[in-house]
Nucleic acid binder design. Structure first.
Lengths: 355, 355
DNA sequence: TATTGGCACTCAAAAGTGGTGATTGCTAAT
DNA sequence: ATTAGCAATCACCACTTTTGAGTGCCAATA
């Protein structure tokens, strides 16, 4: 198995004892937020060696870049590389405790299936379960297909345009018309377009040579134009909207005693520019993704981590959900929470959107 | 006039000089966040008296509860009572500078009128203009009237129910049907209901004795039931959704060097339990409301203030917008920003929703 | 050769120290 | 009623000292 091979290959770099020391150190640091010294590891680690031996091993781990000292006379803290090794090889995968699973399922079952409420609930449940800030994007199809158009007269020259796509997303917009149009005429046009466009993608519609479509003029052409624009926007913005919750949980973390680090979390959550590429990437991945701040392309968000997972039915309707917290995060719990909720969403999506 | 009487009555308590001293003190404290001493007031206040006199007056103001000393050898800071007096009687009302007005108008005119984007923009503009955290609730009608229903088959036994009310709000919900229903039949029912319910309130529908309505059975009755429930929920929850922005601005305030006070701001913004009653109250008030934390029913949110205003067309569609910040807030600017944006919204709402 | 006890060393954090200056309240003079 | 003058207060700052957790290294040990 590739898995086993990888593990063997890794043993060339870290001995089992070093791995155990690293595991204990990261776990302890996650629990206490205090740099961990050799004596502490000896006390709670249960490996039968003296603190001097552990010191030697720690020196080696530091050379290799897995741990670092905030200052000479302090214990060690994990580096980004250390966290990465921990979450990939050392951490014990746990399932979310059954009572919590039951509670979450219960909450989801009580729900009337309104997309907006549903997303909110998901964000709230994630935040509560992982005790950190959460984010959720609504399920979204890749090449959305037209499903239904509705034009409702608001007054003479303004109508409300409601567009429903096959992924169930609803897009609305006020439309100023070039001339006064009555409701009857609006209805006639919308039912015409409903027939012409049904189940088509933007591309198909644009390439159509159907004279009924290409021949549209005046306000009707205007409506079609807006419909296409809305569909394109929906396609382009894989991440349409982001539901958030639980920011307050992050404030409880001791590392945010000073404002600066906390600011980064708020910035990540408020500014799409960070999230958009990360979420898009997650959408196309599979399984729980762990992004540790400071690594590779994520230098800017040093000491903030994200645990994200795609959910939904691939190619039909999928979204991303996950949590944001300090690098020093209880990953085991976070991952199990994210994974469980994502699975639950997979099922719900399959139930609602497809067979 | 009641206004004038009140002012006269108040002059019994505070002499003109005391008022001027209080005004200078609060203004200076708002600007600098540093306790203000008698010398400072003498220097910048321009009242032709010595600092000793000012000290005497300050002692009196302290007795009366308008100012307080953080410790014996420090200057004075305003109390909640002091702030209240300041915003109601001493502060000079200013208009938002014209260039800013122009910029805001410009942003609103560029907008395609989608409610969701609109609310977001409003929150963003408020946050930016008042340099603080902002919140906005969408416009909402009191006794909403039915406008349009659309049923879209998702698969056999699930359909998407879209309900448009007269205030332009759109409500959607997935509906599990008791039996498989085809799209044609869904359409027939929705157009029937559209005729029967058009422009009616929940109350009117419930009290109707029209046999076409009371005679509905099976899944059709189920649909009607859900429509009524949705309409009732829309009526009941005056504050449906809250758009927020600009939290990051609050982090810049020096008083949030420690986390504790900041936490309160986040709590207010995240938990509806604080906001709901405040917003509902504001909705029924008129003009800009200033809520100073620690006062009366708002003890819990000590040292956080809100500047809120209702907007929209009374009885037709109205909402609340405003900002949240530290008690030590540039009220003049905040109020002018909130007032200006609220007026702008009044006009936009009138333009879109009515004559 | 790996492990260990012992020990000198380091250094951040906590506790202590004294000086500074802003500010007050009080008093006596105007 | 107002003011100048002045002693008293006390947070704040810069500085020093103390403390102790923790390290690195070395010589002894298995």
């Amino acid at each position: 198995m590739a898995e086993a091979e990888k593990q063997v290959a890794e043993e060339d770099v870290l001995t089992p004892r070093q791995r155990e020391i690293l595991r204990v150190l990261v776990q302890e640091y996650i629990d206490t937020a205090v740099p961990v010294g050799s004596a502490t590891i000896q006390r709670i680690g249960g490996l039968g060696v003296s603190s001097a031996t552990i010191r030697n091993e720690l020196a080696r781990l530091e050379e290799l870049g897995y741990v670092a000292q905030p200052h000479t006379s302090a214990g060690r803290v994990p580096t980004v590389k250390g966290y990465r090794y921990f979450v990939e090889r050392l951490m014990e995968q746990v399932e979310l405790p059954l009572p919590e699973q039951r509670m979450i399922r219960h909450q989801f079952h009580q729900l009337q299936l309104n997309l907006d409420q549903w997303m909110r609930l998901t964000a709230a449940v994630l935040a509560h379960t992982a005790r950190s800030a959460s984010l959720v994007t609504p399920p979204h199809a890749v090449n959305s297909r037209f499903r239904h158009l509705e034009l409702i007269s608001i007054h003479d020259t303004v109508c409300l345009l409601i567009l429903v796509l096959q992924d169930g997303s609803i897009h609305q917009e006020m439309l100023g018309l070039s001339q006064p149009i009555a409701q009857e005429e609006l209805s006639r046009t919308s039912s015409k377009l409903n027939t012409l466009l049904r189940n088509r993608t933007v591309r198909e519609i644009r390439e159509s040579t159907n004279p009924e479509l290409t021949g549209l003029r005046g306000w009707e052409a205007q409506v079609l134009q807006r419909v296409l624009e809305l569909m394109e926007r929906a396609d382009r913005r894989a991440v349409s909207e982001i539901y958030r919750d639980g920011l307050i949980n992050v404030l409880r973390q001791p590392e945010f005693g000073s404002i600066e680090k906390f600011r980064r979390v708020v910035e990540i959550l408020e500014h799409r520019r960070f999230l958009e590429p990360i979420l898009t990437r997650t959408l196309n991945a599979s399984g729980v993704q762990i992004i540790i701040g400071g690594e590779g392309p994520y230098e800017e968000i040093y000491d903030v981590s994200l645990v994200l997972s795609p959910y939904g039915v691939r190619g039909k309707a999928s979204g991303v959900l996950g949590i944001v917290g300090p690098t020093r995060m209880p990953y085991a719990r976070a991952i199990s929470a994210v994974r469980y909720v994502a699975h639950l969403m997979d099922n719900l999506i399959a139930e609602v959107y497809g067979e």
